[in-house]
């Protein structure tokens, strides 16, 4: 690991965090407290990471920037966990269950699609 790799992760992390910060501002929670912004960030980041890990070479600075940096910071587990607790504390059990199932279901689907997309990109870009 070099200093360049760490810089790539930091730059990607800054961009990913900025996008998540913006998404949670423009997509605020709905009236029943559904955290739309974090859901959007997590699903989009799962699609992007699936694509990045299959399209970019392992161990490259490009993958550090896009994967560990950008997608890693765009998506979050801590806010997902705390949002679930807050929903449960407000006795919004159905919203909490819907949020968990939708996040994980759509996240899995997005990751699988991303892996396919990345493989296709990698094959069509290599001569």
């Amino acid at each position: 690991m070099t200093g360049w790799t760490l810089l790539a992760v930091a730059l990607g992390g800054f961009a990913g965090g900025a996008l998540r910060g913006w998404l949670t501002t423009v997509l605020g929670p709905t009236r029943d407290g559904f955290p739309r912004g974090v859901l959007a960030a997590n699903v989009a980041g799962s699609l992007a990471l699936g694509t990045a890990v299959t399209a970019l070479p392992a161990g490259s600075a490009a993958l550090a920037l896009a994967g560990a940096g950008f997608c890693g910071a765009l998506t979050t587990w801590s806010a997902f966990s705390l949002d679930l607790v807050v929903l449960l504390e407000h006795r919004r059990h159905r919203t909490a269950a819907g949020y968990a199932l939708l996040s994980l279901g759509a996240g899995l689907l997005a990751a699988a699609l991303g892996l396919l997309l990345g493989t296709w990109l990698q094959e069509s870009l290599t001569p």
Partner: peptide, 17 residues
Amino acid sequence: LGPGLLGGFTTFSAVVV
């Protein structure tokens, strides 16, 4: 520190991928 440091520290995408 919340959505910033800890949000960037934890990740969802790597888990599902």
